[in-house]
Amino acid sequence: MEDESKLRAFEARIEAGEKIEPKDWMPERYRKQLIRMISQHAHSEIVGMLPEGNWITRAPSLRRKMGLLAKVQDEAGHGLYLYCSAETLGVDRSEVVDQLLYGTAKYSSIFNYPTLTWADIGTIGWLVDGAAIVNQTMLAKCSYGPYSRANIRICKEENFHKKQGYEIVATMAKGTPEQKRMVQDAVNRWWWPSLTMFGPPDKDSPNSAELMKWQVKLQSNDELRQRFVNLTVPQASVVGVALPDPDLKYNSKTGNWDFGALNWDEFFAVIKGNGPCNRQRMRARRIAHENGKWVRDAAGAYAAKKRAA
């Protein structure tokens, strides 16, 4: 069969480390899986602006406000890089955006948790962006050219996100007893959801084998999660905040930090729409989209007027 030999040639190219470009032949499953992954990734960047956007007007200083504003603006940019790479696979931008606004598109469940205090902003930059960096560093090497390039661009910007967050955490951890309490509370709340950002355990992740065979992913969920834990534990001890896991222990045999069991029931409940902020997030996105309509209309009308002139 023709497709059979095309599939073999496709897999041989991937095996050889070549990148697949938009017009190259690819299995329908590869295209579908990528569209699903890239659009979910894009939605996560866009929805991810909301928990932090919540604190822009209440940042404790101008320096903090400028940093946070620039970070949130970057996340919008990340969403745009990713939507544009999804479009190279033949989906329509408005279709994908509508799936988020009015449909059932998924995005990272972490953004359905509330940002209760300023310490949450530091903790998100440190842990949530930290986890995202681990994931995106892998994706920067994925087999699909446009997605790989979008992630390279993203990774260049993420370091600033993580550092501004860590600086906030470090500052508060050296602060008044109340600031210390606040930052510890934020870390207690964000630690476990951050670990679930890598997705279900390998044994419950049905798509993983195929994604890894085609090098859309190069490491498994559990491998990435372990890498994140190993990187983060020493960072926590430098600033003197505790990670809320009594089972966290260095394993000298494996060289890894072993950690306790994750609450997957909560994870799936949040994905299904029952997290603390799911409805609030979707409502905020729709309102933002609707409130931007007059700007899009005006730009379109102005362009049409110039064309007519």
């Binding site: 479009e87 931008r93 408005s94 509508d98 309102i287 989209h289 609707e290 309509k293 899009r296």
Partner: peptide, 20 residues
């Protein structure tokens, strides 16, 4: 309600694709 899924249609039209 502003931001409700029901408001899709009226906001959707006229808001389709600009060229790439």
């Amino acid at each position: 309600l502003k931001g409700s899924p029901m408001s899709k249609d009226q906001n959707h039209q006229g808001d389709s694709q600009w060229p790439i």
